[in-house]
């Protein structure tokens, strides 16, 4: 019986923690979108929301159009938000979901959608310019000209989104809070004052590291330090 089958069987039997361990081991040797998706599903059923969100994010990094991963990620995030609200104490609580750190527009569309929209509008622009050159009728020429302007604007917009996503989102180091809760500190150490509470599934941008603490940009734009043991990097490594 293959290792995948063993993991699948454990999941079928309702041994979600065991299944998650098996999928995690497989992800180390053969990281792909489906295995991360399975890992996330098993973690979610085991009640570990942070690792589940992390695994679904890893699946989507490898396959942004993985529909099942997107659906399960949304469901687990909703649950994580509810859990975070239930634990909200005196500190400001940051919840998952609004964690694009200002890149919401860039990630609103999938890369394929953006690329196809850009290609259609870009090619359409030159087709319209060619039609405008060849037509002799003034009204039709004007219409082609206006459509060409629209196509140009559209192609620049979608092109900008695509380039922005490449340089702003894809090249940024993100980490996810995998602990049920973590504290955002003023400095790299537990002796520093906590400014906020991070709940499982919150995505942060990593700016640097000092010992066992990561310097991060929080979803609300502020910066803080968090214990690296509470976070997991979102990378393909």
């Amino acid at each position: 019986m293959s290792e995948v089958s063993i993991a699948d069987e454990a999941f079928s039997a309702g041994n979600f923690k065991e299944a998650a361990s098996a999928y995690r081991a497989l992800c180390l040797t053969a990281p792909n979108a489906d295995l991360f998706f399975n890992l996330g599903t098993a973690e979610a059923h085991a009640g570990r929301l942070g690792p589940a969100v992390w695994a679904f994010e890893q699946a989507l990094i490898r396959e942004p159009e993985h529909d099942d991963a997107a659906v399960n990620l949304e469901a687990v995030r909703t649950l994580a938000v509810e859990a975070g609200l239930g634990r909200a104490g005196g500190l400001r609580t940051l919840l998952p979901g609004d964690d694009d750190a200002g890149t919401g527009l860039l990630t609103a569309l999938t890369p394929t959608t953006t690329d196809v929209a850009f290609a259609v509008s870009w090619v359409g622009l030159f087709v319209l310019l060619a039609l405008q050159r060849t037509t002799k009728e003034a009204t039709r020429s004007t219409a082609f000209g206006l459509l060409a302007v629209l196509a140009a604007l559209s192609s620049f917009g979608f092109g900008g989104l695509s380039v922005g996503r490449t340089f702003v989102v894809d090249r940024t180091d993100y980490a996810l809070v995998i602990a049920d809760r973590s504290r955002a500190l003023l400095g790299p150490g537990e002796q520093y004052q906590a400014t906020a509470q991070l709940t499982a599934g919150v995505k942060v941008r990593v700016r640097g590291r000092d010992g066992g603490f990561l310097h991060v940009t929080l979803p609300d734009g502020g910066t803080a330090w968090a214990a690296s043991s509470d976070l997991a990097m979102l990378t393909t490594d």
Binding site: S2, E3, V4, S5, D8, F11, L26, T29, A30, P31, N32, A33, D34, L35, F37, N38, T41, A42, A44, H45, R62, E63, D68, V71, N72, A75, V76
Partner: peptide, 13 residues
């Protein structure tokens, strides 16, 4: 949640 992918590939992605 949506169910897992059975017999997922073990090829690294």
């Amino acid at each position: 949640l949506r169910g897992i992918v059975r017999d997922a590939s073990t090829e690294p992605g």
